[in-house]
Design a protein around this nucleic acid. Structure first.
Lengths: 337, 337
DNA sequence: CTGTTAGCGCCTTCAG
DNA sequence: CTGAAGGCGCTAACAG
């Protein structure tokens, strides 16, 4: 292993000078700077992360807590991880992966062992038991997801009320006279996450604005049978219904159930999913969707995180940041009138 | 921050005793042991990871290099990551995520900065330029995927020749008289990965054994049009063809293309995909598949990794470990005769 | 502008 | 069975 002392010796300077050349924390004559950099290059020196963390109290690592483990919804998770990793690297940080099945213990470990400088927490429940722990951690924590009470922590999430409103606006524009939301399975609602409610609120308000009928069909369990039942009930009342399916996992089977009834979305009715663009495009027919914008959400998260880490900069005053979704028209909605 | 000195003071012992209690590297009287553990509990002491790494030269971190970035195939990646993280935690290790778009630089960084004790490298190309670098790293590296020349590194992967043979065996059993492989898009073959060829070899040998016709249709580009063309060519020669699609991403559109021709898999022909079980089950109709067994592959990988880290234990003599796939009969293959 | 020095918190050899 | 002490490699005062 080559240390900064080796570099110092090779460059004919003191060890601390090497350190200062690397950090830029004090001015160095062009001459010695060059010599040191040459020696670093020559010896392919790299600073020891543990030693640096010990001395500087900064690990250059971001902890990322992701929803793995039994019962977790991992659909569309990858773009989040990817974007977070990429943003971290852009600031010369690394990402340490922790899974939600460790619960609060994972958080105390990250902070207690000084494994990272900040934590990104995903899969936030409405009353997530980890939040009080997270808030008392002594390390900045940012939530992806909005709980009922954020405990003073910064949150970033999709603007779900707006997502609901956008879907309904579009259905109104296409001439539908009523809107049906096909909800989540009961277990998701239980375990999770108030984004469903937030979306419903937005959708309902928009429906009222447009004077459209509005209903929610009882949550769909996983699987095709349940989707069939839900669609049956959704279509039972006649009229010209537009369907909204705010559930990445269910969109496919709901679409299939509609097709199985001999109805063609895009001709006989409209269906708008809340899902990743990837999934929406991969489907046949391609689904008109409101995107979850994982990349925008992640980017904003990391932006706030690094602002929190630079004590030079003010953190954003607003604790809750909502990212606007994007509606993409594909094949499952009627053509514009 | 509470240090081991604080614990020592609270327990009325020396700091080194605390260290020995935690590591178990020398015998401690039951009495002092109890006192120390009580103090640790009381103060909720956790060892500082940086300090420990610096002193012990072990980080308790596993580097995981995953295929993110433009052009990477991330289908079915999550179960790998999840299983690797879980196995790491089972040995009190953490996982540091690095993306393939850093290339060899990511590897030298992991090792040079002493960020981890061992590295798991995914998305291995047939002649992966990172391999010589990886082999000279001074840190154990394990590959998920089998390159042409493993450079002395341990590899774990699905047994693709066997996967090809299993699919063909099944098609023979179901009474088909010829087998068509619908290959990968040219760009995948280029960039990647010789698993396609390995699978083809296994499939071809099996077809010969059974006296079946065997052909490969020119690679499918991404998208539905390409799938349509491929299916057209695959079915052009008549007979009773069985299709094998060794491409998670293409299975869906190939299936759709078959349906669009008015043919029903499971009635008019058979289609076997090489894909995750999740994707195979989610599809309508559910796809008979040969699974990629990401969990088995990952578990074996981590088992080897920790054996390499315990210099007490012998590493496995065999460098290349192949995991057996599993064929699951679903709705896209004919009923057994 | 540069060098010297004192830790950061823990592991581990050496003494007892 | 336990304590004292040196050092892991780096940062950041403190001195010049």
């Amino acid at each position: 292993m080559v240390t900064s002392r080796d570099v110092a010796r090779a460059a004919g300077v003191s060890q601390s000078t090497v350190s200062y050349v690397m950090s830029g924390r004090r001015s160095i004559s062009e001459e010695t700077r060059r010599r040191v950099l040459a020696a670093i290059e020559e010896l392919t020196y790299q600073p020891n992360a543990g030693a640096r963390a010990l001395a500087s109290q900064r690990t250059q690592v971001v902890g990322l807590v992701v929803p793995f483990g039994p019962g977790a919804d991992t659909t569309g998770l990858l773009p989040f991880i990817e974007t977070i990793a990429s943003c971290a690297r852009a600031e010369d940080h690394d990402v340490l992966l922790v899974t939600t099945d460790e619960g609060a213990a994972g958080l105390t470990r990250l902070a207690g062992r000084a494994l990272c400088d900040a934590i990104v927490l995903m899969d936030i429940g409405a009353a997530d038991p980890r939040l009080p722990v997270a808030a008392a951690l002594g390390v900045p924590v940012i939530l992806i997801g909005v709980p009922d009470d954020s405990a003073g922590l910064h949150c970033v999430d999709l603007d779900f009320p707006l997502a609901g409103a956008m879907a309904v606006d579009e259905l109104a524009r296409l001439g539908h006279d009523r809107v049906v939301l096909i909800g989540h399975p009961a277990e998701v609602i239980e375990r999770d996450i108030n984004f469903v409610r937030r979306l419903q609120r937005g959708a309902e308000a928009a429906a009222r604005r447009h004077g459209l009928g509005y209903s929610v069909v009882a949550p769909v369990a996983a699987g095709r049978e349940a989707a069939r039942h839900a669609v049956e009930r959704a279509l039972a009342d006649g009229g010209r219904p537009g369907l909204v399916v705010p559930n990445s996992q269910a969109v496919g089977s709901v679409l299939q159930a509609v097709l199985d009834r001999g109805l063609v979305p895009g001709r006989d009715l409209s269906l708008i999913g809340l899902s990743t663009d990837e999934a929406a495009e991969a489907s046949t027919p391609a689904i008109t969707n409101v995107s979850l914008e994982p990349r925008d959400v992640s980017r904003r998260t990391m932006q706030i995180l690094f602002r929190l880490l630079d004590r030079a900069q003010e953190p954003p005053a607003e604790l809750v940041e909502l990212i606007s979704p994007r509606l993409t028209r594909r094949e499952t909605t009627l053509p514009a009138p």
